[in-house]
Design a protein around this nucleic acid. Structure first.
Lengths: 134, 134
DNA sequence: CAGCATCCCATGAGATACTG
DNA sequence: CAGTATCTCATGGGATGCTG
């Protein structure tokens, strides 16, 4: 009971900053984004390779995700004007700094996944009982 | 140049696990979710208080977000059957363990926000030049 | 006060087909 | 190979109004 006053964002949290934080987090917390950053953490990779490794992503979403990450300076896109063309993607220095925080979240998710799924089941079961009764 | 082989998720990453990770991350990386967890990190709080502090959220989204967090066991909902009713929300122990990873991300966002916005401008400017040119 | 239900529009996101 | 373009359907999410 002595520590509920920790803050996620102590440094100063004007509404503007909080929204900016949420916006950035939403972007990097996006499903495809984290998977792409995850596979690129292994090193530079070509479009088709990312496409296969991520698995289940559509070309459209992969392209959009890559472009958005490039726009934010998280990844770098390098074109080799050979024929057929070859395009490499790799994390920038900025992108690499994302690995540690993301890794922490991954650890959290690993640690809590089973428990969360259990809690969900309980919750849903409880609600269906509530609904059924009355 | 000696360390591009770090992995976001070393512990084992079957497709199934990677997807589960992305799913959890997407949920907790959601815009309203992080803001709600952020304000609840200050301590227990009533619905209306969260509503005001988060700012800009609709009742609908707040209710949905809170329910989803409760379902995942991140927050606890306590009803005091007074009149008018009073409902408190607070982070569970599990929820509190989220504060540290989230805080790290917040730090990352703070550190990189300005640079990212600059990069975005450059990128957009570059693209508009490309588009304008032949 | 704390929410649920409904309407309605904007965006997200898959599938498919075409191109440099 | 590495995309772009379009079509389409599902979901997200705001606004409003009602209820215990």
């Amino acid at each position: 009971m002595s520590d509920t006053h920790i803050d996620v964002c102590e440094g100063g949290h004007s509404p503007e900053e909080r929204r900016a934080f949420a916006e950035i987090l939403s972007r990097i917390g996006d499903k495809w984004t984290v998977l792409v950053v995850g596979v690129l953490a292994h090193g530079p990779m070509r479009y088709s390779q990312i496409f296969k490794l991520v698995g289940g992503v559509s070309q459209r979403m992969l392209t959009l995700t890559l472009k958005s990450l490039e726009r934010d300076g998280i990844i770098r896109r390098t074109v080799y004007p050979t024929n057929p063309p070859r395009v490499d993607y790799e994390l920038t220095e900025r992108g690499k700094t994302l690995i540690v925080p993301l890794h922490l979240l991954w650890t959290w998710a690993q640690t809590n996944r089973a428990a969360i799924e259990g809690t969900r089941r309980d919750f849903d079961h409880q609600r269906s009982k509530d609904g059924a009764a009355a």
